[in-house]
Design a protein around this nucleic acid. Structure first.
Lengths: 185, 185
DNA sequence: GTCTATATCTCGATAGAC
DNA sequence: GTCTATCGAGATATAGAC
């Protein structure tokens, strides 16, 4: 499952022959020994995804309160921590990206459990941080901007293999927090 | 090429058999008539990508100046137009997403011609719009936030098949422009 | 330029010995 | 639980008639 996870993340499950998984696992490629452990490739994919979901299931919500400081600094710390959390989700995100078509109901599940929930948490975090007037005019839209920026930055960094515009994670999250908070708060 | 483009966008070239392309093009599937037109599937993919690059090559730069108004409203209009432009790039973006591994040099090309250039244009647009103090503190980081938010919003909308958090494009770009501009400018 | 037919290959999956 | 061997499906690509 470890080697399969890596292969699925890099090329996608569809582009990963069972023989390759066998070889990577130290089995004789083409031997079919794989099938003593999993019914088929689909079952392995499901097991790998489920294990990842469980692994990262240490609720991200727990992170929302335990940051120190206040205002802009508090939000910056929060965002930096969220970016690390996205890093932990990396394998899952990449696999879901490969499988994006073969599972419309999976996208729906992600939307409900992660995206929409993230907006709620985002609105909460913005309120705690002392939102600017621009944020208060439409908190949900501001939280959507925040979330979009985070996922966009993460995906761009993954795609290019480097920080977009050479802006590193600390600088990025600091700038994002600055834009979202009122310094006179 | 039209039907191939659609198939490549939806499932990726690797998951699209030549027989399927033949069928979609009105040829007899499995006949091999495809090979009278293209050397192989790779050549078709290259031709399709090149045609798309040419098609969208009506320089996006031309859009940067021709928006009316000033300050926040000007930036909002600009961002709304940029989001539409991302929509025109949709096919290309989706194909590059499928091919993300089989072409590291392509990712590099995208970074140089689109991403980095977009940051430059973004910095320019921010200056024209009357940037807030938070933007001026680090213009490049602010432009990176802007660009990340745009691509993140676009990709999330594509992935989920709906606007993230039900925030439609007008509302999103308005909120983003609001966060980036100084209203007293 | 399209067709039938086919050669070749890769891959998923199973059978059966050890 | 791993191996050798193999079957069958599906995919790439070509040959040659029309």
């Amino acid at each position: 499952m470890d080697v399969a996870l890596e292969l699925f993340v890099e090329r996608g499950a569809a582009a990963t022959p069972v023989t390759t998984i066998e070889a990577a696992a130290g089995l004789s490629p083409g031997s079919g020994s794989f099938y003593r452990h999993f019914k088929d490739k689909e079952a392995l994919l499901a097991a790998v995804v489920e294990r990842e979901v469980t692994r990262v299931g240490k609720d991200p919500d727990a992170q929302v309160e335990n940051t120190d400081g206040a205002g802009e600094q508090r939000l910056a710390t929060q965002l930096r921590s969220d970016l690390d959390y996205l890093g932990e989700l990396r394998s899952l995100i990449m696999i879901l990206l490969w499988e994006r078509n073969r599972a419309p109901e999976l996208a729906e599940w992600v939307r409900k459990t992660s995206a929409d929930r993230g907006i709620e948490l985002g609105v909460e975090a913005l309120r705690l941080a002392g939102p600017s007037a621009a944020v208060e005019e439409d908190e949900v839209a501001a939280a959507t901007v925040m979330q979009s920026a985070m996922i966009g930055y993460f995906l761009a960094a993954e795609y290019f293999g480097a920080s977009p515009a050479d802006v590193d994670p600390d600088r990025f999250t600091a700038a994002l927090a600055r834009l979202l908070t009122n310094r006179d708060a």
